[in-house]
Amino acid sequence: MFKKVIIKNDERGLLFNKGSYVRHLQPGVYRHRPFSDDSVILQNVAKRFAVPNMEINLFLQDAKLIEELTIADVQDYEYVLHFEDGKFASLLTAGTYAFWNVMKKHTFIHVDIRNPELSAEIDCSLLPKLQSCIQTYEVASHETGLLFFNNVLQRELRPGKYFFWKGPTGVQVKTFDLRQQQLDMTGQEIMTEDKVTLRLNFVCQYKVVDPLKAFQIKSFEDQVYILLQLILREYVGTLKLDDLLRMKQEIATFVLSRLNEQSEHYGVQFNSAGLKDIILPGDIKDIMNTVLLAEKKAQANLITRREETASTRSLLNTAKLMDENGTLYRLKELEFLEKICEKIGTISLTGGGNLLEQLNSLLSVRTVEKP
C-alpha cells in the first residue's frame, strides 16, 4: 500500500531521500512506496521558508525552488527592513533569509548601520516598530545640540527629535541650554589691601552663544566660576576696606567688563553682574558699629547746638523788639497771662477795685524811660 501525501494550493513540499534534499513539490497528490526512504516536509507559502536544523544554502541549488523564493542576504553591518505587499513585516539582522513569493510580493530596504543616521526612505511611522534597534535623542526648544560619531563632531542639531541606528558607530549628543543662566558665588573669602578678610556674595548672569567653544572647555561651569573668583580678587585686593565700602557700587561694572573680555574664549555672553552682600568679620563689624554710633552722636549734638543757637537768637530778636515797642511788650504780657489763666481753675479777688485794676497791680507795669 502506497503512502499518500497531499500538498494544498497554499503549500509546497520538500522531498527528501534518506535525509538528503531531492527537489521541491508543487500542489498535488503524491504516493510513495511503503518502505521507501522518501519523506516530504510541507511548507506554508504564506510564511518564511525555513527547514528546522538545516541550512538554507542546502536548498538554493534547486533552480526550480529558487524561482518561487525571494532571497535576502543581510551582511553583518546591515539591517534590512522586510515588507510584504508594501507593508512592513519585520526587521532582519545578519543572515540569509528566504520567502515564498507565490502569494505575496516581498521587498527590502537595506540599511548600512555603519552610518547611524536614518535615511529619508525610512518612513517615520515605522519608528515605533523599530525601537529595539534605534536610539533616540531630543533637543529641547531652548537648547542646541552637538552630534558626535565615535567622538568626532558631525554637526550642530537644532531643537527636535533625532533617531539613529544602534550599531558599530557610537552616537553621542551633547546639549547646551541657551537660556540665560545664573552663577552664584556665596561666602567667597577675599583679603583687602589692608589685610581685612571679607566674605562676598556675588552673582552674574550669562548665556551660551557658541556651544562648540563651550564644549571644548572641560568643566565649563567650574572654569567660569574660577574666572569670576580671580576677577573679584583682583579688584578687592587693590583696595582698602574703607575704599571698598565706598566704591562697592563699582564692583559690578568692573567685574562685568573683565568677564566680557573673556566671553569670546568661553563661547558665552555675560549679561549682568552684581554684588549681593559684603560680610565683615565679627571684630571689624563691632568697630564699624562703634564708629557709626559715634558719628551719629556727633551729628545729633551738632543738630542740638544748632537748634539751641537758633532758639537763643530768636529770643534775643524778640527781646529787642519788645524793648523798642511798648505795645508789643504789653501784648506779650497778655499772651503769658492767657497761658497762666489756662492753668487756673478759679480766680479769687479781694479788696477794692475792678478786675482790670487788680490784674494791672499784679503785673506791676513800670515804664522804663529811654535815655
Results as ranks from 00 to 15, higher is better:
residue 1 M to S: 13
residue 3 K to M: 07
residue 5 V to I: 15
residue 6 I to V: 14
residue 8 K to T: 05
residue 12 R to E: 07
residue 12 R to Y: 12
residue 14 L to K: 11
residue 16 F to Q: 13
residue 21 Y to D: 11
residue 23 R to I: 07
residue 25 L to E: 07
residue 27 P to Q: 11
residue 28 G to E: 03
residue 28 G to S: 10
residue 29 V to A: 12
residue 30 Y to K: 12
residue 32 H to T: 08
residue 37 D to M: 07
residue 43 Q to H: 13
residue 46 A to K: 14
residue 50 A to W: 11
residue 50 A to Y: 13
residue 52 P to A: 14
residue 52 P to Q: 14
residue 53 N to E: 15
residue 55 E to H: 13
residue 59 F to R: 01
residue 59 F to V: 07
residue 64 K to Y: 03
residue 66 I to F: 12
residue 69 L to G: 02
residue 71 I to S: 05
residue 78 E to M: 08
residue 79 Y to C: 04
residue 80 V to D: 01
residue 80 V to Q: 12
residue 82 H to R: 01
residue 82 H to I: 00
residue 83 F to Y: 15
residue 84 E to Q: 11
residue 86 G to W: 00
residue 87 K to T: 03
residue 90 S to H: 00
residue 92 L to W: 03
residue 92 L to T: 01
residue 96 T to Q: 05
residue 101 N to F: 02
residue 102 V to C: 04
residue 106 H to C: 06
residue 106 H to Q: 04
residue 109 I to M: 06
residue 115 N to C: 04
residue 115 N to V: 05
residue 129 K to P: 00
residue 130 L to I: 03
residue 134 I to C: 08
residue 135 Q to A: 08
residue 136 T to I: 14
residue 144 T to G: 03
residue 146 L to S: 03
residue 148 F to D: 00
residue 150 N to W: 07
residue 152 V to D: 07
residue 153 L to P: 02
residue 155 R to G: 02
residue 156 E to I: 02
residue 159 P to Q: 11
residue 159 P to A: 10
residue 162 Y to S: 05
residue 167 G to T: 13
residue 170 G to Y: 10
residue 173 V to Y: 00
residue 179 R to T: 12
residue 182 Q to A: 02
residue 183 L to W: 03
residue 185 M to W: 08
residue 187 G to V: 12
residue 189 E to V: 09
residue 191 M to W: 04
residue 196 V to T: 12
residue 196 V to G: 00
residue 196 V to S: 05
residue 197 T to F: 13
residue 199 R to D: 01
residue 203 V to W: 05
residue 205 Q to R: 08
residue 205 Q to M: 11
residue 210 D to G: 00
residue 211 P to W: 06
residue 212 L to N: 06
residue 214 A to I: 01
residue 217 I to T: 11
residue 218 K to V: 12
residue 226 I to G: 03
residue 227 L to C: 06
residue 232 L to Y: 12
residue 234 E to I: 03
residue 238 T to Q: 15
residue 238 T to Y: 09
residue 245 L to K: 06
residue 247 M to C: 01
residue 250 E to S: 15
residue 251 I to R: 04
residue 254 F to V: 01
residue 257 S to N: 10
residue 258 R to Q: 15
residue 259 L to C: 12
residue 262 Q to H: 14
residue 266 Y to D: 10
residue 266 Y to T: 02
residue 267 G to M: 05
residue 270 F to T: 07
residue 272 S to D: 14
residue 272 S to T: 13
residue 283 D to I: 09
residue 285 K to G: 00
residue 287 I to P: 05
residue 288 M to S: 07
residue 289 N to P: 04
residue 290 T to P: 00
residue 290 T to V: 09
residue 295 E to R: 15
residue 299 Q to A: 10
residue 299 Q to K: 09
residue 300 A to H: 08
residue 301 N to S: 07
residue 308 E to M: 04
residue 311 S to M: 11
residue 311 S to N: 09
residue 313 R to W: 04
residue 320 K to F: 10
residue 320 K to A: 09
residue 321 L to S: 10
residue 323 D to C: 05
residue 328 L to P: 11
residue 330 R to K: 14
residue 330 R to F: 14
residue 333 E to S: 10
residue 335 E to G: 06
residue 337 L to D: 02
residue 338 E to W: 07
residue 338 E to H: 10
residue 341 C to H: 06
residue 343 K to F: 05
residue 343 K to W: 00
residue 345 G to S: 14
residue 348 S to Y: 13
residue 352 G to E: 15
residue 355 L to Q: 12
residue 357 E to P: 08
residue 362 L to M: 14
residue 363 L to P: 09
residue 364 S to P: 00
residue 366 R to Q: 14
residue 367 T to E: 07
